[in-house]
Write a protein that binds this DNA or RNA. Structure first.
Length: 426
DNA sequence: TCTGGGGTCCTAGGACCC
DNA sequence: TCTGGGGTCCTAGGACCC
């Protein structure tokens, strides 16, 4: 028997955040529901009923508020703690369904179908969907194809033509590939965003099929290697493999819009201190030390001409560190340089970069000595905060200002991660 | 009035070197 | 008048992703 050609599956959670919220509120399942971004400022997830009402991804709250007030739509503030916990459960189930899994985002994973006969792909997909639904209670969609890009397109088709597809599409067959590629607008292709869509349209390329048929060398010359690979993948040639778990991050950011516009230095400084502490904890969690910190504060991207300001500062750390106190000092030093009196600041944050592995770093003879007991103190802080909740132990700087905290007025209980919020048995 | 946050990869162009 | 060329490294910015 001929070995089956290799196949890849992409599995994603349908309307991820809304599906999770509704798992704990089943009585709302047939109503229009949405989840809002930080500060309750825009819609980031919608179920099919909300889509049917015409609510768009990213639509600002002030355009939707009247639908919520009149009871036509139910809205929830986002609660990433809950979503991440549910995601972990789903990924754990998926990991049992294939020899190799690459977790791609909070709501998506690639699975390597090596070893499975081609004739069983579709049945496998339906079985995975049933298993996740039964064990976690969350609906997923399944796309299968010979390359990542084709699997993604299959997943798009599964959603677009549901419920007819049963949320599963297998695109292994070349005839089905051709049919779908001709139907699919080029902007639905993974890796083709709004800019490329416009530039491709200028060249007369409107469908995935037309992109797949373009000369690869020409694409490389005009658009670069990424678009060339995308086109090759659409034509069935593998350019991206299913990876193992990704390595440590190369940058860690912590940024937030403020709950309202603020102008006082102390308030921005408190926000920056809090963000830096959050990033530092992430840095330690992956065992890295960082050598560069970038801090920024700016007015709204929609501020009028003449009233907008964006300041940023890069601070080099004299020796690699993961100490929250050192990083907060560096961040505030940078903030002092970029702060101007007057602007109504809307957002601020920090980005850590230039990492070295903590266990492989040996301080050189001339480096300033690290803070005494830094390692033990930071670990103790992380341990307490992991057990008692984030920011149980914190730096005084974090409390020195106010008015910048997020708005989350429609927050659901954190059913699975906080004892007090535990869902009642029923 | 009100418009998210956190990532990755690629490329062009400048600095610098021989 | 005419003013090297090629390599490497780094960074800022652009584009994409979810």
């Amino acid at each position: 028997m001929r070995p089956a050609p290799p196949a890849i599956s992409i599995i994603d959670v349908n309307s991820c955040y809304v599906s999770i919220e509704l798992l704990f509120k089943p009585w709302l399942r047939n109503r229009a529901c949405i989840v809002l971004s930080n500060n309750d400022s825009a819609c980031v997830a919608r179920n099919s009923h909300a889509k049917a009402l015409g609510i768009r991804m990213g639509q600002p709250w002030h355009e939707i508020a009247h639908l919520v007030r009149s009871g036509q739509v139910h809205a929830f503030s986002s609660c990433y703690e809950l979503y991440q916990d549910m995601s972990n459960r789903i990924m754990a189930v998926l990991a049992t369904q294939a020899p190799r899994i690459e977790v791609y985002s909070i709501d998506e994973a690639w699975l390597d179908l090596s070893g499975l006969p081609e004739s069983e792909y579709a049945a496998w997909g339906r079985d995975v969907r049933d298993t996740v639904l039964r064990q976690v209670g969350i609906p997923v969609g399944v796309g299968i194809g010979p390359t990542k890009t084709l699997a993604k397109l299959a997943n798009w088709a599964a959603k677009t033509w549901a419920p007819k597809t049963g949320w599963v599409v297998d695109l292994s067959d070349p005839c089905r590939q051709a049919r779908l590629l001709k139907l699919a607008p080029v902007e639905e292709v993974w890796g083709i965003g709004p800019r490329l869509t416009r530039r491709l349209a200028d060249m007369g390329v409107k469908t995935a099929w037309e992109l797949a048929k373009m000369d690869a060398r020409l694409l490389r010359r005009i658009f670069g290697v990424t678009v060339e690979r995308t086109a090759r993948e659409l034509a069935g040639e593998r350019c991206f493999e299913v990876g193992e778990s990704p390595g440590p991050k190369q940058m860690i950011a912590a940024t937030r819009s403020f709950g309202r516009k603020i102008t006082r230095y102390e308030d921005i400084a408190a926000a920056i201190a809090t963000h830096t502490v959050r990033a530092a904890a992430k840095l330690r969690a992956q065992g890295s030390l960082c050598q560069c910190l970038q801090v920024f504060a700016r007015t709204s991207a929609f501020a009028k001409q003449g009233q907008s300001y964006s300041g940023q500062r890069i601070v080099a750390l004299p020796c690699p560190t993961d100490d929250s106190r050192t990083l907060v000092s560096a961040a505030l030093e940078g903030l002092a340089h970029l702060y101007r009196e007057g602007p109504r600041y809307a957002k601020a944050g920090i980005v850590l970069s230039q990492f070295v592995a903590g266990d492989r770093y040996t301080p050189d003879l001339f480096a300033p000595p690290p803070r005494p007991k830094s390692h033990d103190l930071m670990r103790a802080m992380d341990a307490i905060n992991a057990k008692m909740g984030r920011a149980t132990v914190r730096l005084a700087r974090e409390d020195a200002g106010h008015g910048w905290q997020m708005r989350r007025e429609l927050l659901s209980p954190r059913y699975t991660t906080v004892w007090e919020d535990l869902a009642p048995a029923g």
